[in-house]
Design a protein around this nucleic acid. Structure first.
Lengths: 213, 213
DNA sequence: TCCGAAACTGAAGTTATCTTCATCTAACCA
DNA sequence: TGGTTAGATGAAGATAACTTCAGTTTCGGA
């Protein structure tokens, strides 16, 4: 993995013609495909270019290096997850706390499990590539959404919504990871989801004065 | 990262003389030191050998390749954590559930936070190197310990101890990761630990028939 | 239709590290 | 003390990408 260009994350050139935008799109898609097909160890820029149906040179026209390419890919995925969380938060404003909890569990697991292999692969990529910053930004956004959501809960919180959101999301993330590492994620998913709801509900009950059903 | 030798993880040669055992030890320590000092991107076998005070050739006498070296390092660390869990489980056999929960939270966070940078760095290494298998084996051992512990709880569980253990450990892991990724882990640690205890207690209360304090 | 800019090409250069192996030294044992 | 095995050495070889750039093609407006 290259040592250069920590700072240069942005595409070099902003597409102005249609075909170039198409190239960028193709390259990003190809990156994910190659990643899934052969794994990050054997992902090469040439291979990605081939799969995208362009030349390596074109690839390097839009991404300063391999690392930036992978980062862009990662960012896409993460944004998808945090957008899913954000949407669900919008939908459940002013609901009851438990309802919120249930909705979050479903949304989170769905987002991660939609295609298991993609999530798992990108987790692995994340630790190269300084993915920490990217996933941090993304999970920060989720945390905000969830904290705001909790703040609107009918029952009223007795704790800092930010803290509650942090704990809930961390727990969700822990279980999701556990699931992704399992041999047959789909098989275990349902059971763990039920249990996760129990966990989240139990916790949320401690965060409010009123007695929840 | 090499593509070869997926299967060959074991040291090539088993030390029979004292000095060679010392070499192996020195190499492993050096690996960790180099990792912490310059990061995995710039860790080279030559650099490790230098730091260990041996030649590269010696290194390759005991580790078939760089990957195996890092795996050995990772295994060491993971074993430390699961041993800490195992110990605490022994100590709290037949205690009350809540007590167990508290003890686990402390043990887990302590183990991960003892030296934050080491944990964080090795997490990153883990995703190269096929670390999944290693950490899986280790966390499987932890899960066993914790499940056995829960099975001895005074109150008696109304759920499968394995499931309960899985959920609790996943949640712990999620929060620990969140903490390791934070800018100042030590600063947030205490607050999150308290909250984690609340979370675990709340969950454990749902796992037993009797009313817990 | 023509021209300048945008986009594309891909062979070749560059760099960096892993890994080997022929050779040397130290340890052990009879 | 001499022979045999274990251990250590490190320069050289091999590999495997990444990345560049000079030249070509395509696009879009005048």
């Amino acid at each position: 993995m290259p040592r250069a260009a920590r700072a240069v994350l942005q595409p070099r050139k902003t597409p102005v013609q249609v075909r170039s935008a198409a190239s960028v799109e193709a390259i990003l898609q190809a990156t994910l495909q190659v990643l899934l097909a052969v794994g990050k160890e054997r992902l090469t820029t040439t291979r990605v270019a081939q799969r995208a149906g362009v030349s390596v040179g074109t690839l390097y026209q839009y991404f300063p290096n391999k690392s930036a390419l992978l980062q862009a890919c990662l960012r896409r995925h993460m944004d998808g997850v945090s957008r899913a969380i954000g949407d669900i938060c919008e939908k459940h404003k002013s609901d009851g706390l438990l309802e919120m909890g249930t909705a979050l569990v479903f949304a989170y697991l769905d987002a991660k499990m939609r295609n298991v292999k993609e999530s798992a692969t990108l987790y692995a990529v994340s630790s190269d590539v300084d993915g920490a910053a990217i996933s941090k930004a993304s999970s920060e956004r989720s945390r905000r959404s969830v904290a705001e959501l909790f703040a609107t809960a009918r029952e009223g919180l007795t704790k800092d919504p930010e803290v509650v959101a942090t704990v809930v999301l961390a727990a969700l993330n822990g279980v999701a990871r556990r699931l992704l590492e399992a041999k047959f994620p789909e098989r275990e998913a349902e059971a763990l989801r039920e249990e996760l709801i129990v966990l989240v509900h139990a916790y949320l009950r401690t965060c409010t004065a009123s007695q929840l059903a």
